[in-house]
Amino acid sequence: MSTVKHNYTRPLDFKHGRVDMTHGSGGRAMAQLIDELFVAAFDNEFLRQMNDQARFPAPQGRMVMSTDSHVVSPLFFPGGDIGCLSVHGTLNDVAMSGARPLYLSAGFILEEGFPLGDLKRIVESMARASRDAGVPIVTGDTKVVEQGKGDGVFITTTGVGVVPDGVNISGERARPGDKILVSGMLGDHGVAIMSLRENLTFHTSIQSDTAALHGLVAAMVAAVSDIHVLRDPTRGGLATTLNEIARQSAVGMMLQEDQLPVREQVKAACEFLGLDPLYVANEGKLAAICAPQDAERLLQAMRAHPLGGDAAIVGEVIEDPHHFVQMETAFGGRRVVDWLTGEQLPRIC
């Protein structure tokens, strides 16, 4: 009988344990973290190959690829956390081409001392988001930085997808006369996050809108195959997104303020913080631009989807050599809706 003892590894202590430098060193501790946390949570046939790369069948057609780093603070917020956000963020960037997302990768930068329990919560939230979306996380990476060199955890995700034949959605395709639509209430995510920021804590029932939008996009593409532009108005809000598109397409835009869907609570929070909901971040909304004759059909398809119930037609693409995004105010005047300048800072009086 062999006297060699079986390997025994004490399981990770998710209750009291913390990330230390060995978890990123490439040794046993790292292998254990990968096995007991990441592989266990994300489990899928590609990850189980346990290679340095994931091998998967390549579909026919045009592929899209997108990457997104997530550094949100605080890590946990009403309606979500950095985990599900990092999955939704990249899925949405892939989906805005009209593509069906297929695979995700995830890179973690962990700060020494970060509670393993919090990491587990985050990873499980990612796993849930990826399962709900039907898009597996097929490969990943973990690094640990010394205490003070990170902010708990940073997550970078990359996604690939395939665009259905005949779909050509791109930021330079907005044409004068096109209609501008949004899929729902604006500014929820930014206000939910801001309600927790240091020095600013206020009570709100607003939850982040973080959500994967590829299902909504599929329903929209099924209704109107020739959507011209899709984009998710994340950082910088709808205003910044529309300015990007206006520049790319060399057009102007005219929004109708009274058509913009914004919750009363978000309006109120913005009012007392001196912010404009048009510049506040969203994580589960999209802006769509299509030909005027398709707009009503697209709107109905959006409203029929659970993530598009509050969709609205909010404006029109116009000719403008200056590429201004403008707005007819509910008050009856007109103004520019400019790019976001710096970070949105509060007014003082």
Binding site: T329, F331, G332, G333, R334, R335, R347, C349
Partner: peptide, 15 residues
């Protein structure tokens, strides 16, 4: 400045 802001933001000059 608060009035300046309101005048510009609501497009009062147009009225």
């Amino acid at each position: 400045g608060g009035h300046t802001h309101a005048i510009s933001r609501y497009g009062i000059a147009d009225l």
